[in-house]
């Protein structure tokens, strides 16, 4: 059998640094979307607890157990970064190659995202492990705060290059203004 070479979704576009802001690729080799059938949310949560050691987080939240994350990703849907078996309880779909994820960090990160995302992402309202679905420029994204000056941005893989392009433009603009 042919040996295939694994390539990241962003190719050589990342890492990218402009001013004090850096983007790096986040590699999660397995991603599964979990959409509980009607009325099965508690059973799904219990199943995840047994299999992965974490329960379904609330709307707009992420949970982690070691390297495994479970994140709200939309209406009645979550994404987990490990295989799960939930027969009869939820629609589980392999999304491993479906998403591209990057982490954007730096002192001016909020100023960069403020140019692109119509949400208040300041730490007073958007805390660590808060996650939101919204638009970044024209791209539908999932944004999660991972630290005081760090966010993760998840986008459909086909839009990875557009995401980097939009971020690079905003990072350049913010850097040109000097301090944020």
């Amino acid at each position: 059998m042919a040996r295939l070479i694994a390539l990241g979704a962003f190719g050589d576009l990342l890492p990218l640094q402009v001013g004090d802001v850096t983007c790096t690729e986040v590699v999660r080799e397995t991603l599964f979307s979990v959409a509980p059938y009607r009325g099965q949310q508690k059973a799904v949560s219990a199943g995840l607890k047994t299999q992965l050691g974490l329960t379904l987080p609330a709307v707009g939240r992420r949970r982690a157990a070691g390297d495994v994350i479970c994140q709200w990703i939309g209406h009645d849907a979550w994404i987990v970064s490990a295989p799960v078996t939930l027969d009869g309880l939820a629609a589980v779909t392999d999304q491993s190659d479906g998403y591209a994820t990057l982490e954007i960090t730096g002192a001016s990160v909020e100023a960069v995202l403020a140019r692109l995302v119509p949400l208040d992402l300041r730490s007073a309202t958007f805390k660590v492990n808060h996650t939101a679905r919204s638009l970044l420029g024209h791209l539908p994204v999932s944004i999660t705060r991972t630290g005081p000056q760090a966010f993760e941005v998840m986008v459909m893989r086909s839009m990875a290059a557009s995401l980097v392009h939009d971020l690079q433009e905003a990072m350049t603009g913010v850097a040109a203004r000097g301090s944020a």
Binding site: G74, H75, R133, S134, L135
Partner: peptide, 8 residues
């Protein structure tokens, strides 16, 4: 339809 958000 909340297409630029949660999809509800």
């Amino acid at each position: 339809y909340h297409e630029g958000g949660c999809g509800a």
